[in-house]
Design a binder for these strands. Structure first.
Lengths: 207, 207, 207, 207
DNA sequence: AATGAATGAGTGTTCATTCAT
DNA sequence: GATGAATGAACACTCATTCAT
């Protein structure tokens, strides 16, 4: 009836976020029951409500915190870098690294967008667009300064993001390639093409 | 009490598949209730079971039929084309076109994989791998014949697929770019890079 | 859409009664679904209604037909026998024989009484009482004529019926005892006790 | 929205078992809906699941608890009695008394056997056989010590049990006969026959 | 006499959430 | 901060029954 000895508030909240993240990642938000979540945390379902307000709020919180951190860390990663080429390089390295490290958060940010109530949805989409605009801005700067040739700035940015984000779905830490190798390969593909023709100069063939 | 005049079996089944596809796309499989689905079709919830066996089977059917058709159409698109460059070009054009035309089917094939029971999951993943291997095969052929330079065949294939598939999330038929323009841009990005540096020829910079 | 070649009315009805009897015996009336019944017969559920009016009526019919036959056969078995002792003997032989041969009908007559709607229930209980009164009548005749000593006519009749009917639950045609042996044993137990004390004459001990 | 003041766990569970027993007795397990059960208890259907795991488990629990108690009480009733005649007498008295007192539990133990899932079925049948073997053991002891004459030990035991258990179906506490009178009559019928012939000594007639 | 598609009520069960303790 | 018992709505699914064909 009284609480389990040793448990306490902040620890419990942290356990809820951790278990929630894992369960939403593996089962999906709708499929995750709060009873299951509570069981993983080691408390009763009703006790969750000492820490969260609603299930929806837990989802939003997980996503919002992640998006905020993503944006903050990106700023840190780009801080002090001026040259568009260097900034693009830094963006790619950051994005790949972060998405490998936080694949679960990243995944639910994409897959559970539709589970967000409209107000929360708008906020998250806004944050995501902020992130996308950072990349578009880099490309635009490069184009404006005459350094980059880009077929279509927006399409390229979406292409880059889709390609890089895909790393979440297949990268294994213990696999054939290291994080650094992957980053290098992706950088090369972004800059020179994913599949190049050998004996005909790429420039001549360009549309 | 008996059936409404004019309704009939095959039409109802088609309506179920159509409404199911739309609802799963917009709400997700777990969030879609069969009552809602039935209401959209214009029948009672229980009547669905004259046409489907379970909710899970409806999902699997939608995905399976789509994957089968995807593979079949790809074969048609590549049929009679021998040169790796031409085959890659054809693959890209097919993939972009098909994914624009069937964005909902494509989306649920990715997003609802986790909602599939393990037996169904295995089947679908197997079909997906077949599709991926077609692309990897093209790349391998090109490399083997000395026509392609590819940093890493597998990573490149995953990169291409992620990049191209991303088209589903932003393409609007009435938007700025036509399907053909998008295909052209993507082809260029695959072959020469998404962001190239202007004054240094790509060839010279190639790894 | 048209009917299966070779099927026809009376045969189908007979198949329904046969399958219904078996299913009600093994699963119980409530637990038997008409879809299952139809499947066993080899038709669709809706087609049952060309032969039965309702599920309840099928149950009632099965029970009623059996009770009528039970009474009719009993009359045949007792026909022409006047002496109470002989009549009791004939009753026991008939009851055991019939209950072994029709164990499923007998079982559902007891176990599904509560599934009968009140009007049907009353009818069946009336028929059952008719049967019980036949036995009570035999006992009463024997007592009236000074041939029988019975502690309590009604209790004895219920006791005999319960004991004899129990044969349904354990008798196996291929078992240790033949139908005739079982009848003999039961007759003995009715007349002389189920467990007698050896060295003290039963008569002396009688209450 | 939360629970009604004054209600509490153990009381609710007891109310569920009581109402469940009554409803299964009157309607049968299949015919009893959990909504009806909940209504009788005064809670919502879903709230039942704070106390039971499944409907099947409630049935099994009711039966299992009864069988355990039946066996325990029988042991108490026979405790300290050595002579087979006395033990048989004690068994009859116990069985009749217990079955009159617990007619509903007894009834569902027989009638709802087929509603038990196979694992539960096996357990209950095992317990029932334990009970039957107690009686068979008494008869065997009596025969072994030369005190009893029994036509067939097993058939006699089944006959006794069927006959005595039948008391459940007709005994009325306010009826013509008291519990003690019924016990006396049954004992007499077991020992000396249900219907005896007056002028010919039973012993002489024995098979 | 059979089918297949429909109905509307019902099934056991799960859900997020509440709240007195 | 935790519990356990409650709510009321919802879930996927099954049911007996109907009827145009």
């Amino acid at each position: 009836m009284a609480r389990t000895v040793g448990s306490n508030g902040p620890k419990t909240m942290e356990a809820i976020r951790k278990a929630g993240l894992r369960l939403i990642y593996t089962q999906g938000y709708e499929a995750m029951s709060l009873r299951r979540l509570a069981a993983e945390v080691g408390i009763q379902a009703g006790s969750l409500y000492n820490h969260i307000t609603t299930k929806q709020d837990l989802l939003f919180d997980l996503i919002k915190v992640h998006m905020d951190e993503l944006l903050e860390r990106l700023d840190q990663a780009l801080d002090g870098i001026a040259d568009p080429e260097d900034r693009l390089q830094a963006f790619i390295a950051f994005h790949v690294g972060y998405h490998i490290a936080r694949k679960r958060e990243v995944f639910i940010c994409y897959s559970e967008l539709r589970s967000l109530e409209s107000k929360n949805y708008d906020i998250v989409v806004g944050l995501r667009q902020q992130y996308e605009r950072k990349l578009i801005g880099i490309l635009d700067d490069g184009v404006a300064s005459g350094r980059f040739t880009v077929a279509d700035t927006t399409v390229a940015a979406y292409g880059i993001l889709a390609m890089l984000t895909g790393v979440c779905t297949w990268f294994k830490p213990a696999g054939r390639l290291s994080k650094e190798e992957v980053t290098g390969i992706y950088t090369g593909m972004v800059r020179h093409g994913l599949v190049r023709t050998v004996d005909a100069p790429a420039v001549a063939e360009a549309t």
